[in-house]
């Protein structure tokens, strides 16, 4: 970033070198902005407060606010250690593990949901075992969390792995030689230094989890989350019916993003 700034100021009297990429990039931005603005314009004509005060909408918001943070927490608690191992160790079959991490990203979410169903559905060994304990793995909030975690966890793993990979291993070696074991070195050195990347990954994972629709629909169409609610409302009432919940979903994601960024002092999600 600082390099780009430098070269721009040095060569201000020449034709800007970034003209062509900037022009192409602007087209991309316009394509992002137009649907967004169009949707927001439409939102002005509907009564959002009324739409959000229906019991169905309230339940959906509550379910989403309950499940997405839990999914994000699970993805972080298990994904960050995995990311660290992937960044530090080389072992036989590492390629396979890496492919496995990417798998949920390349499998269409709805297919991912189907896969989860074949693994933990009611009539599978796992599903029926859980059912005998009174735990329902599908069509339940647990099901929602399973679907969200499956689809969203790769983001925090991939981003955190890049963050750990960028840390010179010698910083960790210095910590070891100064008397700290591997765990406290991870806690004192690796984790704080990769914090920006990890937080960026958490935000991406949360955004993906709370917006998850395809896999959730397969695993737990009920109870409704905000995305499934939006789908149901759309089928029943068309575009205007979905505006309140859709805006609420957007609002929550933006609020979390801002809060985490402020709290974690990360400039932006992508630019580190």
């Amino acid at each position: 970033m600082s390099l780009a700034r430098l070269s721009r100021s040095q060569q201000s009297n020449r034709l800007p070198e970034l003209l062509v990429p900037a022009a192409l990039g602007t087209l991309m931005l316009i394509y992002f902005a137009v649907p967004f603005v169009a949707f927001l314009t439409r939102a002005g004509t509907t009564n959002i407060i009324t739409g959000l005060s229906t019991p169905e909408a309230q339940v959906a918001i509550r379910n989403s606010l309950l499940t997405a943070p839990i999914s994000t927490l699970i993805a972080t608690a298990f994904g960050v250690p995995l990311a660290y191992v992937l960044a530090r160790a080389s072992f036989v079959g590492k390629r396979l593990v890496e492919a496995l991490v990417i798998l949920p990203l390349i499998v269409p979410p709805v297919v991912g949901g189907a896969m989860i169903l074949t693994a933990v559905g009611r009539f599978t060994p796992i599903g029926s075992a859980a059912a005998t304990l009174g735990i329902s793995l599908t069509d339940s909030l647990i099901g929602v969390i399973l679907a969200q975690t499956f689809v969203a966890a790769p983001f925090v793993i991939i981003t955190a792995r890049a963050g750990f990979g960028a840390i010179d291993e010698r910083l960790e070696q210095a910590s070891r030689s100064l008397g700290y074991g591997p765990l406290s070195t991870f806690w004192n050195v690796s984790l704080p230094l990769a914090r920006g990347a990890i937080i960026a990954g958490i935000i991406l994972t949360f955004a993906r989890a709370i917006g998850e629709f395809g896999a959730t629909m397969m695993v737990a169409y009920n109870p409704r989350t905000m995305p499934t609610r939006i789908w149901v409302d759309f089928i029943a009432g068309g575009m205007d019916a979905i505006v309140p919940v859709a805006l609420a979903l957007l609002g929550i994601t933006l609020a979390v993003l801002t809060a985490v960024q402020r709290f974690g002092r990360v400039p932006t999600v992508i630019d580190r």
Partner: peptide, 27 residues
């Protein structure tokens, strides 16, 4: 490594950027 009493300085800087000078030395 933590069970040997060995001080090490590498060619590449390995100070902890999230700690002050005194915190680094106290580490």
């Amino acid at each position: 490594p933590e069970d040997r009493h060995v001080g090490i300085v590498f060619q590449q800087p390995t100070l902890y950027p999230h700690m002050t000078v005194s915190e680094n030395v106290a580490y």
